[in-house]
């Protein structure tokens, strides 16, 4: 074996640095902001930006663990139902006389358990794929919410609970602070830790990861459980902002969350993408939605745009790859 020296410095080029997907998102956010600012002179005012942000941040909490799930090549479409179920259970327990604090703990616990069940089913029944497993639990979880609450609303929470979604700390919305803390935590987990490295490994090649001593099943269960927990966190903020809950809240959240993750550049084939992309996508879709609201675009039109955004953000990389390989031949 002749001795050989390998370089241990990465080559840095400005071209590859600026050709990253995240820059596209930054440009798009700027474009949307310019559009919004031209539609409304108040848009760029601090108070307005702050309140706009508060409006769309609730579901952003689910985006964080969903990044992990999609990175591993899985999907979880039951998150919206978990939001509903933990919100309904929290309200139900509170109405049965449990102190609000404990009711919240119970809500968080329920979400965590729901996520854990998803994870266990996914790893125990590998032949089923996470699509069908979470499809079934999606119906079941919302079904339980309907059984508990029928089609009624439940509310009358204590005042302090309302603050969760509406209050500011030092002029900054509490929900934004909470999101920032979670985002930094999840970003650190994904990019700096052993755990995150293993998640990437699973997404790229689950078999090789297992052969390399990565406990694939354990990590998957943990990530699905985290998704359950964060869905419950979303449930807290959403319920607080709405002041009451119903068994049909948060419907369609799964689409929005998945759209944000995919738009953030996380590949549905697994193993590729970064947390920052998904976070940028949260703000992009949030501002877009705000701007469309300014020009009185209907909620239905928004559905169409969201659906198309999802399709486009998956299709563009696919098509790019296809054309690249065609040119090579």
């Amino acid at each position: 074996m002749e001795p050989r020296v390998l370089a241990n410095k990465k080559e840095f080029t400005f071209k590859s640095f600026f050709l990253q997907w995240e820059w596209l998102l930054v440009v798009l956010i700027l474009a949307v902001s310019v559009m919004n600012a031209s539609l409304s002179e108040y848009f760029l005012e601090y108070d307005n930006l702050r309140d706009a942000t508060m409006g769309f941040l609730d579901k952003a909490f689910i985006v964080l663990p969903m990044v992990f799930i999609i990175l591993m090549g899985d999907i979880d479409i039951s998150v919206a139902s978990i939001v509903t179920l933990s919100s309904v259970i929290m309200a139900d327990l509170f109405n049965h006389g449990l102190p609000m604090g404990w009711a919240m703990v119970a809500g968080l616990a329920v979400g965590t358990i729901c996520g854990w069940i998803n994870g266990m089913l996914v790893v125990r029944f590998k032949e089923l794929s996470s699509v069908i497993v979470t499809l079934a639990t999606m119906i079941i979880y919302r079904g339980i919410a309907y059984i508990l609450l029928k089609d009624q609303a439940s509310g009358k929470f204590p005042d302090w609970f309302q603050y969760l979604g509406w209050e500011y700390i030092g002029g900054i919305p509490f929900i934004l602070i909470a999101f920032a803390v979670c985002a930094i935590g999840f970003g650190w987990l994904l990019h700096k830790t052993v755990f995150g490295r293993r998640v990437y490994a699973i997404g790229n090649n689950a078999t090789a990861s297992r052969y390399s001593g990565v406990q694939v099943d354990k990590i998957k269960v943990l990530v699905f459980t985290l998704a359950g927990l964060m869905s419950a966190v979303t449930a807290m903020f959403l319920t607080s902002r709405m002041g009451s809950t119903r068994p049909n809240i948060a419907s369609g959240y799964e689409l929005e969350v998945i759209a944000m993750v995919v738009l953030g550049g996380i590949s549905t084939a697994g193993g590729k993408g970064r947390m920052i992309g998904a976070i940028l996508a949260v703000f992009l879709i949030g501002f877009l939605r705000y701007g469309l609201g300014l020009v009185n675009v209907s909620a239905q039109m928004l559905l169409i745009i969201l659906g198309l955004l999802l399709i486009l953000s998956v299709a563009i990389p696919q098509l790019k790859q296809r054309f690249a390989s065609m040119r090579r031949i």
Partner: peptide, 21 residues
């Protein structure tokens, strides 16, 4: 385009539903 069925149909579901309205 090679999009996963779940993603493609989830996206188009909303498009079609929006179109209905």
């Amino acid at each position: 385009v090679n999009i996963l069925p779940i993603i493609a149909t989830l996206g188009m579901m909303n498009v079609y539903r929006g179109l209905t309205f």
